[in-house]
Nucleic acid binder design. Structure first.
Lengths: 254, 254
DNA sequence: AGGTGTGAACGTATTCACAGCA
DNA sequence: TGCTGTGAATACGTTCACACCT
């Protein structure tokens, strides 16, 4: 099963399909920033303002907004609430989506209690766990308390709950098993927080989010910076005692 | 790929920075897959095998491995343990890095208890939290029990612990404050799990990992697939529209 | 003026195809 | 023979610059 060997473009005429992936990622961020601003008095803002707030280049922001019908007014800018609505519409986030969560450990609990998830159009409607000791526990999700069920009940409960997204936050060992059960239950979108590389049919989209991997990537980026200044052993102290962040780049050595 | 703010950085003479960013991300994944395989009997494997396991194209895998001195044997493949060592070496993951964690809530606890983090060269050596009620709690990290300290102690404790990476898993409201304190303490690598866009000096690398955002991106990608079969959304495909108070659906939640 | 929208230039990442070696 | 390593070709994403609207 070749994961992404399908190079031929599939003609999907939906307006959503026009958004180039990377832009969609930023659009969700713009939306989040806009929602934070909608309470403020600013009812309009320019692309540069929004770009500043989101931490991106203003040019790419306008390009991103152009993919959706951004309705910006030339010489003025964008209306905050209207733009937020447009983005949410274009991204298909206008309606709420039901989510099933697998894994009632600390990670699963963190996801269920995550303050943003419930406010961005997602509702966790079921929690499953492989451990019998956890079955029967009640987790406090954003949409109310949720009983923890054994994962064997994924097949029976998910279809009735109109679950669209499955989140896997279990131990690595059972991740593939849970994935298979989600797929069997008709779930087409899976968010995988485990370190396991999941295998699923082509029509199922699996998105990995490995927390440890993010740490590693960060560490690698740091090594790159460290390598710039000195090719020596980078295993040393960082014990500078500059109270303020003056911290000049150490370019001496050698 | 600076986080935010363009800046006039004249970065790197690129004498060493051979690894092209995106490749580094995949290399960490290859490393993880290899570590999972090193227990198995397979002592060698080909690029296509590894590509299959990691879910990527074999061509790009070989390209990635070529960036480091991947010592593969033509006609045979790669030696599992040797390759894992090479990747870890090239990525600078050979040594352990000390991590400070801010946020002792459910998300912080999930990170501290994450099984992979302790096994991939990271040691959480300090935990901070803004809430006084949590100060004094003890969290079970991968490197032993850890007392939760108030965030005001970041400045005093981090330097003595050789902390290289700061992880922010607090509430959004205090994220920037914690970030500032980490920066002041000389930490140059920050992993941000909050939804806040953090601002930090250029020499500090801030990597955002927003869990809710990952869910949204997944939902958007899913809309693309779902557009083929038309679930029940009935999204209009007319790209036109006037922005005259068209009823913004996004509500500013509580 | 002030700021959006967008074609064109640019840089980066991925894929292809094949040379070279065990 | 088979698989690695890598230059060339291609696709993609970002930045630039400016036309165009208010």
């Amino acid at each position: 099963m070749r994961a992404q060997a399908e190079g031929i473009d599939v003609p999907v005429d939906s307006s959503i399909s026009a958004i180039p992936d990377a832009a969609a990622r930023r659009l969700t961020q713009y939306l989040h920033v806009l929602q934070g601003l909608s309470g403020a008095e600013r009812s309009r803002l320019s692309s540069s303002d929004l770009a500043e707030a989101a931490g991106v280049n203003s040019a790419i922001l306008r390009k991103d907004l152009s993919h959706i019908g951004a309705g910006g007014v030339r010489g003025v800018g964008y209306d905050v609430s209207a733009l937020a609505g447009k983005i949410a519409m274009a991204l298909g986030l206008a309606r709420s989506r039901n989510v099933a969560l697998a894994g009632a450990g600390s990670l699963g609990r963190a996801i269920a209690e995550h303050p943003e998830i419930g406010h961005r159009g997602f509702a966790i409607v079921a929690v499953f766990d492989a451990s019998p000791s956890r079955a029967g526990d009640v987790m406090s999700g954003s949409a109310g308390p949720l009983p923890v069920r054994p994962i064997s009940e994924i097949a029976t409960r998910c279809p009735g709950l109109s679950v669209e997204i499955g989140v896997i936050a279990t131990d690595d060992a059972v991740a593939q098993d849970v994935c298979d059960k989600f797929v069997a239950a008709g779930i087409g979108l899976i968010l995988n927080f485990t370190g396991t590389t999941l295998h699923a049919p082509d029509e199922v989209e699996v998105r990995p989010v490995d927390l440890a991997l993010e740490l590693q990537v960060l560490a690698v980026s740091g090594s790159r910076h460290a390598a710039e200044r000195a090719t020596r052993n980078a295993a040393d102290e960082t014990t500078d005692n500059n109270a303020t962040g003056a911290e000049p780049k150490v370019s001496t050595k050698s």
